[in-house]
Nucleic acid binder design. Structure first.
Lengths: 341, 341
DNA sequence: CTGAAAGCGCTTACAG
DNA sequence: CTGAAAGCGCTTACAG
C-alpha cells in the first residue's frame, strides 16, 4: 500500500540500507547514488514512516504537554494558547511535534502521562503548571523521564529544571506599590492554595507588609474554593468588614475584571473606593474602564524557555537541573490610586 | 532495557503471542493463563510499546489537530482552548490521543500536515478553521485521508464532513434584531474575508437588510486588514461618515470590547449613540459596562461534534460525508438599544 | 486454547 | 561506498 524504502530501493537499484542512508544524508554515500535515490523517492512520492523509525531509534521527536485539568475553566484564560505558542516555536525549530494530554481530572491526566511515557509516545514532557501535591511530578522523577515544569515545583525543585516568574518578588513589588499609595488593608482574592504560584504570591504580599510593619490579616484572603459562583457575595461580605480593604490583589485579570464589575453594581468606585490589580496582562485589560493595572508575566516566554531547556535536556547526557526566571513587570494603568482618607 | 512481551512471556511461561493476546483480552485465552500473564505484567511493570503496536496494526489511535496559524494573535481568544476541551472529551472516551500542529505560517502548517499524514503519526485530522483558499484541505481530500472540519469548507463542502454554526442564519437574526431596534446604518467591523465564517456572516447581514428593503453599504464593512493596530482610527473615520452607522456587528467579542473602549474615548455612548454586538460569548462580556450583547456559538460543542464524527468516520468504511449544525443563539444584554432619533 | 513464524518499515553494526 | 542480516516490540494468520 504505502511506499517504503524497499520500493524506492528497487526503483533506484540500491538496497534498502542505502535508501535509509540517503534519508539520513549519510556522508559516505556518493552524491551520484544520493541523487538517484532522491529521484526515486520523488517519483514514488515516498515519505518515511515515523513510527517505524521511532521504534528502532528509540526516540519519537515529539514532546508531551501536560495541560491543567480541562474540567476547570482555567482554560478560558489565554494562558494556555499563549504558552503553547512559545513551546511551538522551539519545538518547530528542532523538528519536534507536540502531543497533548487531555484529561479532565488529575487521575485521568496521570493515566495519560503514564501512557505517554511507557507507551513511548514522547521523548520528554512539559508540565504546564505546578501544584503542591503532584503525583505526576513524582512519577516522572521516579521514572527518570525527561521533563521541565512551568512554575516552581513545590518539592524537589533543585532536581527539576523549571521556568517561572519570580512570583514572590513581583507580588512584593505590587504590594509595595499599593502600600506606597497609602493602602494598608490589602486583600488577596482568588487564592488557589493548590497552585504553587498562589503560595508564592501570597508570600510576596506578606513579605512586603511585614517589611512595612503592616500586619497581615488572614481574613483578607479569599480562597478560590469559597468563590465558586459566589464571588459577588464574597466580595460584598469582604467590604462589610469593620476594616474593609481599600486595595485588592486579584489572582488574575479575569478575577480582577469580575470584581470591577461587581464594584460597579455595589456602587463602589474603582479605583477611588478600592484599588484593584490583576495578573497576566490580558489584552482586554487595556480596554475596560478603568483600564486594569496588572502584571505582565510573559507567558509566551515561559513557553519558549520551558521547551528550550527540555530540548537541551534531551540532547545532553550531563544536563544539570536549573531554574530559569522569566521577568515579570507591573503594568501601571488606572485601576489603582492613592487611598482617599 | 524496557520490559517487553518477551520478558513477561518468560516470567509467565508462555509465548510472546500469548502475552499479546491477553493484552488484547482475546476471548480464546483461558482465564487461568490470563491471570498468570497479568501477574507477570504487574510484577515486571510492563507497558505496551504503542509505537510497535501502531506499526503493525497501522493505526495510531491519535488524531491530529490543525490549529490556525499561531503567528496571528487569533489564539488570544478562547476559541482554541474551548474547542480543544470538546475534542478532548470525545478523544478520551475512545482512548485517542491528540497530536498538535504548531506551524506559524500556512506553509509550515502544510508541511506539518504532510508529515502527520505520510509519517503515519495520526489516524485522522480535525481542521479547526476553514479558509477560502486552503491547500491543506485539497491535500487531505486528494490523499483521501480522514478528516473533519470546524467551519464550512468553501469548496467541496458536500464531500467533507464538517461542523459549523449556521452563520448566515444567526447573523441574519442579529441584523433583524438591530433593524427592529430602528437601525438601518449597520456596520460590520473586523471582516476577514479569508475566513469562510466571515463570508457567511456578511451574507446573513446582507440578506436581512435586503429582506427589509434597506440598502447595504459597502463602506460600512471594515476589513481586518485595514484594522492592524489602527482600529481606533478606522472607527473614528467610520463615525465621520455623512451617514454614520448607529449599530455595529463586530467580528468577535474582542473587537466589540475594543470598540466600546474607543467609543468611550471618543465620547460616543454605547448603546445610546451606537449599538454593538459581538460573537462568541466570552466570559468577560458579562462583566464589562455595558454588558455585551453577543452570540453564543457553542464552541465546546463544535469540538465535541467534530471529534465525534471524525471517530465515526475512522470506524465505518461506508461513512457518508455530512454537515452538522451546532445551534447558535443571541445573548441579549446591554450593548444595543433602540435607535434614538 | 496456545505456539512458531512472518512481517510492519525502518536503522545500524558488520563485512567487504 | 554499499549490501545482507539482525533487530526494534509488537500482532496475526496458520497450525495443531
Amino acid at each position: 500500500m504505502a511506499v517504503t524504502i524497499k520500493d524506492v530501493g528497487k526503483v533506484a537499484n540500491v538496497s534498502p540500507s542505502t535508501v535509509s542512508r540517503v534519508l539520513a544524508n549519510h556522508p559516505k554515500i556518493s552524491e551520484a547514488t544520493k541523487r538517484k535515490v532522491r529521484e526515486a523517492m520523488e517519483k514514488l512520492g515516498y515519505h518515511p514512516n515515523l513510527q517505524a523509525r521511532s521504534l528502532v531509534v528509540k526516540s519519537t521527536n515529539t514532546i508531551g504537554i501536560v495541560m491543567p485539568n480541562s474540567a476547570e475553566l482555567a482554560l478560558e484564560n489565554p494562558f494556555f494558547p499563549e504558552v503553547l505558542r512559545g513551546i511551538s516555536l522551539k519545538a518547530r525549530e528542532s523538528h519536534y511535534g507536540i502531543y497533548l494530554t487531555t484529561g479532565a481530572s488529575a487521575d485521568e491526566i496521570y493515566q495519560e502521562v503514564v501512557q505517554m511515557v511507557q507507551g513511548k509516545r514522547v521523548d520528554g514532557i512539559i508540565l504546564l503548571y505546578s501544584k503542591t501535591n503532584d503525583y505526576i511530578m513524582d512519577y516522572l522523577l521516579k521514572e527518570q523521564f525527561p521533563f521541565t515544569v512551568i512554575g516552581r515545583p513545590f518539592i524537589n525543585a533543585e532536581r527539576i529544571t523549571h521556568v517561572d516568574n519570580d512570583n514572590i518578588y513581583i507580588t512584593k513589588q505590587i504590594t509595595d506599590y499599593l502600600l506606597q499609595l497609602g493602602h494598608t488593608r490589602i486583600a488577596f482574592v482568588g487564592a488557589n492554595m493548590e497552585m504553587v504560584y498562589t503560595i508564592d504570591r501570597l508570600q510576596g504580599l506578606q513579605q512586603s507588609l511585614e517589611q512595612a510593619g503592616v500586619s497581615f490579616d488572614e481574613c483578607l484572603v479569599i480562597y478560590d474554593a469559597q468563590l465558586k459562583n459566589r464571588m459577588k457575595e464574597q466580595f460584598s461580605k469582604l467590604l462589610q468588614d469593620p476594616h474593609p480593604p481599600t486595595a485588592i490583589v486579584a489572582a488574575d485579570d479575569f478575577v480582577a475584571i469580575e470584581l470591577i464589575s461587581y464594584a460597579e453594581d455595589l456602587n463602589i468606585a474603582v479605583p477611588d473606593d478600592i484599588s484593584i490589580v490583576g495578573f497576566n496582562n490580558i489584552i482586554i485589560g487595556k480596554y475596560i474602564k478603568p483600564s486594569l493595572t496588572t502584571v505582565e508575566i510573559n507567558i509566551y516566554q515561559l513557553g519558549v524557555e520551558a521547551a528550550k531547556y527540555l530540548l537541551e535536556l534531551l540532547k545532553e547526557d550531563d544536563f544539570l537541573p536549573r531554574r530559569i526566571t522569566v521577568p515579570a513587570k507591573m503594568i501601571e494603568r488606572k485601576s489603582c490610586c492613592r487611598k482617599i482618607q
